[in-house]
């Protein structure tokens, strides 16, 4: 049995979802580079709003209220990526990236060749190339993605990014380094230049 006030809040939220859902979804996709994660975050936001509906002050801007909740969910999402399990995953991937690129002395392994020769302008203007890279970013481990989003999307300083992600500065540099190597490898694998 649902009470009438619950019915009431449910229909209000349904209305808000229609009005602001796409804005929230777009923002979450931008901040996480993942449609799947973004959908989950919008869902969690609506659920939290439903549970805390009596804290919403009538007459205040619902969009502002929802976005406050959503932004907290985004922060939580990146913090949660700091669990032992996902740390192990990104550590494992990091090791693989290191081994693929460097020998035991830390010199570039022979197998690594430069990506492109003097075609930069052309590549940046190529929508296909950009979309391959986009896809590569989407497939990074959550924390590495957090580094990319913080640095390139939000233009945050290093200290802020490491605070957001709950990691040390040296960890942050290493992740940024590994993320870039991984993106480079992913581009090499998935972007075929016609030659």
């Amino acid at each position: 049995m649902t009470t009438s006030s619950e019915n009431n809040s449910h229909s209000t939220l349904s209305q808000w979802l229609n009005e602001y859902g796409d804005d929230m979804y777009s923002w979450a996709v931008y901040k996480t580079s993942s449609k799947e994660t973004a959908e989950d975050l919008v869902q969690e936001t609506l659920l939290s709003a439903f549970k805390a509906f009596d804290k919403y002050k009538l007459g205040s801007n619902p969009k502002t209220w929802l976005f406050t909740i959503l932004n907290n969910k985004i922060i939580d999402y990146y913090r949660a990526s700091n669990t032992t399990k996902s740390i192990n995953q990104s550590e494992l991937m990091g090791k693989r990236v290191d081994d693929d690129n460097f020998d035991a002395q830390g010199a570039w392994s022979k197998a690594v060749s430069p990506l492109w020769a003097n075609t930069e302008e052309h590549l940046l203007d190529n929508p296909e190339f950009v979309s391959v890279l986009s896809c590569c970013i989407e497939n990074l481990p959550a924390q590495w993605k957090g580094v990319i989003v913080g640095k390139y999307f939000d233009h945050k300083k290093g200290v802020e990014i490491s605070k957001d992600l709950g990691i040390s500065s040296s960890n942050l540099w290493q992740m940024a380094h590994r993320a870039k190597l991984q993106l480079r490898g992913c581009l090499k694998q998935n972007w075929k230049t016609e030659e």
């Binding site: 430069p114 492109w116 590549l123 940046l124 390139y152 870039k180």
Partner: peptide, 27 residues
């Protein structure tokens, strides 16, 4: 060589960032 690759990736990610900031996706 890696430095050059790295710069190119930097530029490409920045380009993606500015494209995505204007992108609207719908549920």
């Amino acid at each position: 060589d890696y430095g050059r690759d790295s710069q190119l990736i930097d530029q490409a990610i920045s380009k993606i960032a500015s494209q995505k900031s204007e992108e609207r996706v719908e549920l």
